[in-house]
């Protein structure tokens, strides 16, 4: 019964945690897993994963979020219901943590619970090398170590999600790949995925001659309003 698999997503604001969290949860549900998504963001007032509650619930995913998320007030709350992810009733739990060390603070509260399920836990540091706060190794190291300290959790995976929103390109992703592989060597954390739009990933594969660390994982973008293209 109690063999829930867990994916925790942390990183800098704008690293793309929320897009990845939505993709992880929807892919999990599509594979028939009983899936739950926790919006653990205590920082961001807008553009949070629970804003896609309807889409997720239609896919059979349970959404746990502060009852004030996406409302008119800004309260840094964690839903008490988050504890349900440790009861064994789900096959797959995705935890979308707020950005930066300050966002990771909310995760620290679950240190004991997470310690008990460590063998089924993936902790993913999402890296977008186009963000000024994670643009080189010293900056990433600082960000990652502070997130580990505040979140009271060690990272066991890196995800290269380098993008420039609608200006994303394979070259841009490759810049991020060089950085994520450097971080991987220096901090001894393996690269798990390279994420992005399917067409960009395909061109990235050609560009690199398939010489890269990590697995290509196409994701669908759902958070960005279409009118931003104008």
């Amino acid at each position: 019964m109690a063999n829930t698999k867990y994916d925790i997503l942390v990183g800098n604001y704008g690293s793309g945690k929320t897009e990845i969290a939505l993709n992880f949860a929807l892919d999990g549900a599509a594979q028939g897993k009983k899936t739950v998504l926790v919006d653990l963001d205590i920082v961001n007032p807008y553009f949070r994963s629970s804003a896609k509650r309807l889409l997720l619930e239609e896919a059979g995913i349970m959404v746990i979020a502060s009852e004030f998320a996406n409302t008119g007030i800004d309260l840094p709350l964690v839903s008490a219901e988050t504890a349900r992810i440790f009861t064994g009733e789900f096959d797959y739990a995705v935890i979308d943590v707020g950005g930066d060390p300050v966002g990771a603070t909310a995760l620290g509260r679950y240190k004991i619970e997470l310690g008990k399920i460590a063998d089924r836990l993936n902790t993913n540091f999402v890296l977008n090398a186009s963000r000024p706060q994670t643009i080189d190794l010293p900056a990433v190291r600082k960000m990652l170590e502070l997130i580990e300290a505040r979140g009271r959790v060690k990272m066991n995976w890196l995800i290269n999600n380098t993008n420039l929103a609608n200006e994303s390109s394979p070259e841009n992703l490759l810049t991020g790949q060089r950085l994520v592989e450097e971080v991987s060597r220096e901090l001894d954390i393996p690269v798990r995925y390279i994420t992005g739009r399917a067409d960009i990933l395909e061109k990235f594969r050609e560009l690199t001659g398939a010489e890269f660390k990590g697995e290509l994982r196409p994701i669908v973008m759902r958070m960005r309003p279409g009118w931003q293209d104008y």
Binding site: Y13, G14, P132, L164
Partner: peptide, 14 residues
């Protein structure tokens, strides 16, 4: 270089 920024951050940097 072009970077990805949140509006509030970019306003401060600008």
């Amino acid at each position: 270089a072009r970077v990805l920024m949140k509006g509030n951050e970019a306003i401060a940097e600008a």
